[in-house]
């Protein structure tokens, strides 16, 4: 027996609905919908950049006068800003891309997503 059936059977309730089924996902605004592969590639860039910043910050905590490290941090901070902007405009993940619905609650959570 399916889990959802089991649940509804036990509780005398209809199966749980998901946001997806209710059609809550609005179209992306500003640019064409991204393919799964493009999203993965962009998220990878964001992850790489974020991790570089984490490493740079940690290094700078013990080397606060390292000018090369400061320059590295600034460069990646700027890149991350641009990547995040792109993410927000081109996907519905993280922030609400349309102004009628806070889509943050509709998109998969990090432990539910294959991204």
């Amino acid at each position: 027996m399916e889990r959802t059936e089991m649940l509804s059977d036990m509780a005398g309730m209809p199966p749980l609905q998901t946001a997806k089924e209710e059609g809550n996902r609005p179209p992306t605004g500003g640019c064409p919908p991204m393919s799964c592969e493009d999203k993965k590639a962009l998220l990878h860039e964001i992850r790489v950049c974020t991790f570089a910043l984490i490493e740079a910050k940690l290094f700078l905590d013990s080397h606060p006068d390292d000018r090369q490290a400061i320059a590295f941090y600034r460069k990646h901070r700027e890149t991350l800003n641009q990547l995040q902007k792109k993410w927000e405009t081109c996907t519905n993940e993280v922030f609400n891309a349309n102004c009628s619905r806070w889509t943050w609650v509709d998109t998969p959570w990090p432990w539910q997503s294959e991204l």
Binding site: E2, R3, T4, L7, M10, A11, M13, P14, P15, L16, Q17, T18, K20, C36, K39, K40, P108, Q112, S113, E114, L115
Partner: peptide
């Protein structure tokens, strides 16, 4: 409301729901 609008007695045997187990495609 979501589990069942008429469910006056709020309970929900929510072990491993379908939603929780699902790995969503992007």
């Amino acid at each position: 409301d979501k589990v069942n609008a008429r469910n006056f007695y709020a309970f929900n045997p929510s072990f491993d729901t379908a939603k929780a187990n699902l790995i969503e495609k992007c």
